[in-house]
Design a protein around this nucleic acid. Sequence first.
DNA 1: CAGATAGCATTTGTCTGAGAAATCAACTTC
DNA 2: GAAGTTGATTTCTCAGACAAATGCTATCTG
Lengths: 261, 261
Amino acid sequence: MPVIKPDQVTAGGERKNRKELHLHSSIARDLGLRIVSGRYRPGHVLAGEIEASGQLKVSRSAYREAVRMLAAKGLVQSRTRTGTRVSAVEQWHLLDPDVLAWVFAGEPELEVLQGLFELRTIIEPEAAAIAAARRNDKNLEVMRNALERMGLHTVNVEAGRIADRDFHSELLRATRNPFIISLTNGVAAAVHALTEFKQREHALKRDPLPEHWRVFEAIEAKDTERARTSMAELIRLAITDMPVKRWPDNWTDSRLVRDSG
Amino acid sequence: MPVIKPDQVTAGGERKNRKELHLHSSIARDLGLRIVSGRYRPGHVLAGEIEASGQLKVSRSAYREAVRMLAAKGLVQSRTRTGTRVSAVEQWHLLDPDVLAWVFAGEPELEVLQGLFELRTIIEPEAAAIAAARRNDKNLEVMRNALERMGLHTVNVEAGRIADRDFHSELLRATRNPFIISLTNGVAAAVHALTEFKQREHALKRDPLPEHWRVFEAIEAKDTERARTSMAELIRLAITDMPVKRWPDNWTDSRLVRDSG
DNA sequence: CAGATAGCATTTGTCTGAGAAATCAACTTC
DNA sequence: GAAGTTGATTTCTCAGACAAATGCTATCTG
């Protein structure tokens, strides 16, 4: 009999809602979300392993592996007798793809949004310039394909957002700089979640495709300066698309005055 | 009798050489080093849990927790039946402090060095500019103290390198941008290891302190533009200090022509 | 009473052994 | 020859026990 599995029903099933494959991963995600969302503040001491694993109805080892993952991402720190406590925010690996995804899974605070855009404003124009210098035909091909898919689906649907992410990922990949590429996974994931976040309020009015093509054309032409400026413009527009009434103070302070001046 | 513990002798002690506290951490470090050093290439499948833990003479749970940490850092990926295999380099969280430290624990390849300096060239001048705009007196105090210590010890000894790291950390912290601060832990650790790396060949001829003070003064004066340029100069000088005969091609391509031109 | 000290309790860390779940490969069957 | 079945292998999860570290407290001592 061809047993068609009904997509994981799991008797007590509440945890496997999302495509979480493993128990320890989903526990880590649960705890991670509670930490980055502020439910567990820095300094907060988690319940002991026995009690915590008991509440979650999982074995101690599964719970421990989850805690070990969070510790590897700088979110918690375990010590005997003291217990496992949430680390200071400065210790968090905010550019870790998972952490970033957890941060943007909820309603990110304005300062966090600002911080991410500020980082993108610094990195991506330069990355675009470097990509223009080092890109090969395969990079170009992938980027063109991504933009075509993006135009086909629009960023209002998942497929379009994936295409958007693919474009930025391939751009950073074209820099041939492993560290910049490593930022890919994180920033791309955040941008992805962010585009989704925009949609929560209302569908995007403006079509972001033209500025994407301008960046592409600059990189295709190996025009580093134009790649830099067009990418800066792309991000500037992306910021204006955010459903944010008023950005926090000194947002335009140091960096952005230079581009607009 | 006041039992003065002889600093962890550990009968079979070979693992606790460094200040590794826990078994799983030191196993993760061992495996992590083997991966980033290239001994275990991407695609390589690690020995099964039973065999691997047997070889290391540790329990399966300790070994599993180590693997879980490496998986959290993107270095490996585990799947039933297939086993645990080393991920592609693009998946590695290269900006994770541990991963970065492991990378620079050995002889880093030229391309990696180049990549890190390229990232610093992009980030730190802008970070200095932002820091100049947002720094408070406490930031200034910590930075000044760090530079004084740096002048006292010189970067030829550990205390001086720590002071150097503290300066850069506090600078990034002054940006008030959590993502840039998060880069601190990683980049600072790398710079620290890097300064140590320079010393392996021969003691540093040039005194790097003057350019550090120039950056400090610009930030003290809240002069964003001067902070940017002086930091760019600091990094440029740091690059020339590297004991590298010839940098790889297109090193001066896109980004640096702009600063020097 | 002050301070050191020894013991106690609590929490994470490590080990062992067993079975469950997933999945790749070979085989069987129609 | 294709679809389904079985089997083997590997990670995943569970359970229970002991070890190690460490903060707390009561006790001892000057």
